[in-house]
Design a protein around this nucleic acid. Structure first.
Lengths: 109, 109
DNA sequence: ATTAGTACCTTGTATCGCATAGTACTAAAA
DNA sequence: TTTTAGTACTATGCGATACAAGGTACTAAT
């Protein structure tokens, strides 16, 4: 029983929402997404992000294009599809409902 | 890819926090906890709650006592241990940090 | 030729919410 | 007396996902 594990558990499902949110602001490649999340104090590692992006792409929420880079290997730029944008809206509601529910639960007692 | 699954995922780790919060207000037995969570729009089913309580007890965060009931089988009243109270404080911080991080992530882009 | 930096990908593990099924006690209805 | 309904606790197996750890590959500077 440690706080680190709980942190990991609390992230489940939330990362999906955050990543779609970041991409709603425009195209990004994975390493860039990790950096932006880190700036917001939401640490996410590669082993988490890549499978997640793959899943979101396979489910039609994201698309990508390759772009050459002058400072290393080519980058995979991801962006939201219309379906992804719709799903993001639903996730927003879901997240707000959860925050609200938790607030009620911890206040009442 | 459906919203119901994401909801379930988002709950992970959060329920632990909510249950400890409910118990910080005094002794409760499982069915009562489910009712209170439901009132706050946080649906939790038996198959989720009982294993969770078991785990929290085994980790020394909760203790319980049996009490006879006039309307059915005896009830198991759970309450926080000092360790549980300490852990709850840490969870509170963890949850607030997550909410904050998500807010930053979705605002910035 | 080697090293450092950047970027993407895969595999295995642990955890947790949930569906499902089951046990057991009380009390009222048949 | 037997059956049904309500209450309460328990156990098993599944699916989803964050993470650790390790790997591949390209560019540029030493």
């Amino acid at each position: 029983m440690n706080i680190e594990n709980t942190k990991a558990q609390m992230k489940k499902g939330v990362l999906e929402f955050c990543i779609l949110s970041v991409l709603s602001g425009g195209e990004n490649y994975p390493s860039e997404i990790i950096t932006k999340m880190k700036e917001a104090k939401l640490i996410v590692v590669e082993g988490t992000l890549y499978p997640l992006l793959m899943r979101l792409k396979n489910d039609g929420l994201l698309s990508y294009r390759w772009e050459e880079s002058t400072s290393g290997p080519p980058r995979k730029y991801y962006k939201l599809t219309p379906v992804g944008e719709q799903f993001l809206k639903e996730l927003e509601t879901t997240w707000n409902e959860l925050v609200d529910a938790v607030k009620k639960t911890i206040e009442k007692h």
